[in-house]
């Protein structure tokens, strides 16, 4: 019977479930930002990329479901989200590499521009229901319906998890990964090696934006599964902090995303068992946590381990 209460067990379950559900956009956006920052540029505009991804995914899924059917349509939406993200990424990649143009400023302008475009074109898609991505039931072993529905794993989560070792391998062991790191760590050396800094960074930013766009698709086609203008609520910006938290390591991006996703469930889960004060402060937990960890782990004597050397410097 679905009416069985879990009581206090609901808190860890809620956090576990919230982790699986809520971490997907964080994971994809932070992996994208990790790739971008490894090349020596920051893209704060991923908040806008997330919005345009969410909108395009929902719109394409809705519009194409009549043509290709409701099974294929959300996947077309995911693809559209990635492509829309790449479009914004190309603008950022080109503009932020012009002389004297600051990448943080371009990023904030891109938040406004991307968000504006998403809201402008997204109006007709707020109300209709678009076909959602399927989920994989990982909780079939349990007889508790709460456990079953908590353990609904999105294929996009698996995609993100699969990208983690791939990206790690890419940075460590491939020629292209070496190029990205060289460009990010010491552009002069990279230039001496004959690498085109512009095109490597462009590729890293566009690739990162593709992942962020898919992160947007996970918001509108998996969880919470709607398109509204407030859907991203700062998650794109948070992902930028998350990458620093994760020390530019894909594996640590995974752990950090799980932590941030779980932290989102903290406030509601505590309220549901009667801890109902201070929910604004609970909701701010991820921010406080990130700041505290940054304070503990940073040192004035050396730059952060793993920090790309050219990050935050003018090109």
């Amino acid at each position: 019977m679905a009416t069985e209460a879990l009581g206090w067990w609901g808190v860890p379950l809620g956090i576990l479930a919230g982790t699986l559900r809520g971490s997907v956009p964080f994971l994809l956006v932070s992996l994208g930002e990790c790739l971008t920052e490894k090349s020596g540029k920051i893209n704060l505009g991923l908040e806008g990329t997330l919005l345009i991804g969410a909108m395009s995914a929902y719109a394409i899924s809705y519009l194409s479901s009549g043509i290709v059917g409701p099974t294929l349509a959300p996947w077309l939406g995911v693809l559209a989200a990635g492509l829309a993200g790449m479009g914004l990424g190309a603008i950022h990649g080109w503009l932020s590499q012009q002389p004297r143009v600051n990448d943080v400023a371009v990023g904030i302008a891109m938040i406004i521009f991307g968000g504006g475009l998403a809201n402008f074109f997204g109006k007709p898609f707020i109300q209709p229901q678009a076909p959602q991505l399927p989920t994989l039931p990982a909780g079939g072993w349990s007889s508790l319906p709460q456990v079953q529905s908590a353990l609904q794993v999105s294929p996009l989560f698996l995609l993100g998890v699969a990208i983690v070792p791939l990206m790690s391998w890419f940075f460590k062991s491939t020629r292209w990964g070496l190029y990205v790191r060289a460009v990010g760590d010491s552009p002069d050396a990279a230039r001496a090696m004959g690498i085109s800094i512009f095109w490597v960074r462009m590729a890293a930013i566009v690739g990162g934006s593709f992942l962020a766009g898919i992160g947007g698709a996970s918001l509108s086609l998996f969880y919470p599964g709607v398109w509204t203008e407030r859907i991203s609520s700062g998650q794109g910006l948070m992902a930028v902090a998350l990458v620093i938290f994760a020390r530019w390591q894909p594996w640590q991006c995974l752990w950090a995303s799980l932590l941030f996703g779980g932290a989102q469930a903290l406030g509601p889960a505590f309220q549901s068992v009667g801890i109902d004060s201070y929910y604004y402060l609970f909701n701010a937990a991820p921010y406080i946590l990130t700041l505290v960890i940054m304070i503990i782990t940073c040192s004035p004597k050396r730059t952060l381990a793993g920090a790309p050397g050219a990050l935050g410097k003018d090109s």
Binding site: S149, P268, S272
Partner: peptide, 24 residues
């Protein structure tokens, strides 16, 4: 009652709904 703290915050609303479902 679960407060989300904002008039429009889709992720928190979904999270609140889910935690209620967990509580039966």
């Amino acid at each position: 009652v679960i407060f989300t703290g904002e008039w429009a915050e889709p992720v928190k609303e979904a999270e609140a709904t889910n935690s209620m479902a967990d509580q039966g």
